[in-house]
Nucleic acid binder design. Structure first.
Length: 590
RNA sequence: CGGGGCGUAGCUCAGCUUGGUAGAGCGCUCGCUUUGGGAGCGAGAAGUCGCAGGUUCGAAUCCUGUCGCCCCGACCA
């Protein structure tokens, strides 16, 4: 049966909704695919549901081809499994929690590693049962601090999440590769550009992790890539450390007065004026060591001050630092923090003083100290002397101070060298549409998922988890496929194969249109039929454009002469065809 | 959580400075006309002006509080 526009639950809107910023959000609402229900919550209308179902169909087909089996878990789950793995606490405010009538704690699952693991533990106990990959397409819930951009970041969203279970490391690699390959096929079929980037695996506790990013200026993820093929999420980018310098013969550190130089800029100007370099080159911000005091908030709520040292020409990147300290939170230290720690002289902090080390657990400030990878042994810096209006020259790493370790704490810049030697990187924005993880044994260990191997020994299963954001993909496709008139769906996910528009006041056009609709349906096409009487052609054409079915068949003024028009929504091209040829032309195309 | 903005009809918004019976366009209903690019005329339905308190003879408008939403940042598999 064709879908008749006269009865379809749809109202297209002439104005952009006031709360929408990006094209996909505006158009999906205006074209009647979705409606907002609350912050980050959307209802799906008939058109939207069809597109979403098409995305899910592609995912299901490729999951099946990759040997994954579909299951379905509740979105509402008891907290216990999440307590065992620590995620009940780790998620903090990030999940929706609720109680039943007996006050037992539940959550709306943000992701399902725990219960998949437990289900496999319940049913399987032999290596012969593995490998196994199971998946579901299920709504997920996250209490996002700030939902935004319509479907791109919602608090309820549909995700395909797959989990692989293997007895061996080699098995995990194969299972991971099978999902990764499936993802490439899925995105190719959906016509979506993507870049596979190295991701930070730390938070999920795994060994290898890659994200599929769709490059887009509205994306929330920054990633870097080099012409030589390196690509990484900016949080996973690693800095090449320069070679260490032998300490012998290096000049000693010397403290100097530096009145009114609380910033890097003022300091550089001052040393160039008062302590110029012997070699004639001017000092730059990159010669200074900037020490920034941060506060970690650990899972138990305790607060720990730390310091990071990095070249003064770089800003700190808190997101990259978070990776190093996950799951602890990181924020800049407050005035109160400085007030409590007298050894930290704001504006003049350095790792070293004439009285000995200052930063570091054994230093005067008694806080842990980490440095950027560029701060290698033998590198000498201009840095704070821990006395108000005093700095020091030639403070040398490995001699005057020793850091607890190196961490990635500095911003990444376009032009920085890729760690694999493939050249300088540039920085772009992307939308995460898929993520594959080698989880390893973290969850299996915590939940006790073991199988007997061929020697009769119990071994812990190794796992992978693989996500695709289904609702997000609907938005991304809309974002990538529209013009100023409306949506333009790729045929694989379009809500209909063809949109038949009957226009005119003569009953003949409607009779001919009905026959064409029947013919198209008989040939297997999904048809949207604009059968509305007394609606002007302009309105019908406008609705066809905003709805975005790629193939439009206009039955109108030419119908009496045996002609209809084929309208390609993407190119705008209209072709007159004989009524008798119309069905074949369309179904061949589709 | 920090900064900014906004809450008035289904939607997009005006009115608020300077208090005096609630407005427009779109959409919706009915009638007539119109039918290849969001049509015309006429007649309608539709709003606790986010909420609560206060000032006042009188509050959408002024004051206080509060809730919500949007944007930027922070956060975010």
């Amino acid at each position: 049966m064709p879908t008749r526009l006269s009865h379809l639950f749809l109202r297209t809107l002439r104005d952009d909704p006031a709360d929408a910023e990006i094209a996909s959000h505006k158009l999906l609402v205006r074209a009647g695919y979705i409606r907002r229900q609350g912050p980050g919550l959307f209802a799906w209308l008939p058109l939207g549901l069809r597109v979403k179902a098409n995305v899910e169909r592609v995912v299901r087909e490729e999951m099946a081809a990759a040997g994954a089996q579909e299951v379905h878990f509740p979105a509402l789950l008891p907290k216990e499994p999440y307590e065992v793995t620590g995620r009940w606490e780790e998620y903090g405010d990030g999940i929706f929690r609720l109680q039943d009538r007996k006050d037992a704690d539940y959550l709306l699952a943000p992701t399902h590693e725990e219960v998949f693991t437990l289900m496999v533990k319940d049913l399987y106990s032999s290596y012969k049962d593995l490998p196994l990959t199971i998946y579901q397409i299920q709504d997920k819930y996250r209490d996002e601090a700030r939902p935004r951009a319509g479907l791109l970041r919602g608090r309820e969203f549909t995700m395909k999440d797959a989990y692989s279970f293997d007895a061996t490391d080699e098995g995990l690699i194969a299972s991971y590769q099978a999902q990764r390959d499936a993802y490439e096929r899925i995105f190719a079929r959906l016509g979506l550009d993507y870049v596979i980037v190295q991701a930070d695996a730390g938070a999920m506790g795994g060994s290898r992790s890659e994200e599929f990013l769709h490059p887009s200026p509205v994306g929330e993820d920054s990633f870097v890539r080099s012409a030589g093929g390196y690509a990484a999420n900016i949080e996973a980018f690693t800095t090449i450390a320069p070679p260490a310098i032998p300490l012998e013969g290096l000049p000693s550190a010397e403290v100097f007065d530096s009145p009114n130089t609380p910033t890097i800029e003022s300091l550089v100007a001052f040393v160039n004026a008062e302590h110029p370099r012997a070699d004639g080159r001017a000092w730059t911000a990159a010669d200074t060591l900037k020490n920034v005091v941060l506060a970690l908030t650990h899972l138990d709520g305790s607060r720990e001050l730390i310091a990071v040292g990095l070249p003064g020409d770089r800003e700190v990147d808190l997101a990259r630092i978070e990776v190093a300290f996950a799951p602890a939170g990181v924020e800049a230290a407050t005035e109160a923090d400085f007030a409590k720690n007298k050894a930290l002289v704001k504006g003049y902090i350095g790792p070293w003083a004439t009285t000995g080390p200052v930063l570091g657990e054994t230093g005067a400030a008694r806080i842990r100290y980490f440095v950027d990878p560029r701060v290698v042994e033998g590198s000498a810096w201009i840095t704070g002397a821990n006395v108000h209006e005093k700095h020091a020259l030639f403070v040398t790493a490995g001699r005057d101070f020793v850091a607890e370790g190196t961490i990635e704490c500095a911003e990444v810049r376009a032009g920085d060298p890729a760690p694999d030697g493939s050249g300088p990187v540039d920085i772009a924005r992307g939308i995460e549409i898929g993520h594959v993880f080698q989880l390893g044994r973290k969850y299996a260990e915590a939940l006790g998922l073991k199988v007997l191997d061929e020697n009769g020994k119990l071994v812990t299963v190794t796992m992978g988890s693989y996500g695709i954001g289904v609702t997000r993909i609907v938005a991304v496709i809309a974002e990538a496929n529209h013009d100023d008139k409306g949506l333009i769906w790729p045929s694989e996910v379009a809500p209909f194969d063809v949109h038949v528009v009957a226009t005119g006041k003569d009953d003949v056009v409607f009779d001919i249109a009905e026959q064409l609709v029947d013919g198209l349906e008989a040939a297997g096409a999904d048809v949207l039929y604009d059968d509305r009487p007394k609606v002007s052609p302009g309105v019908k054409f406008g609705d066809a454009e905003i709805i975005g079915v790629p193939v439009i068949l206009i039955v109108g003024k030419g119908a009496a002469h045996g002609l209809v028009e084929l309208w390609d929504r993407r190119t705008g091209e209209r072709t007159e065809v004989a009524i008798s040829d119309a069905v074949d032309r369309i179904t061949m195309k589709a």
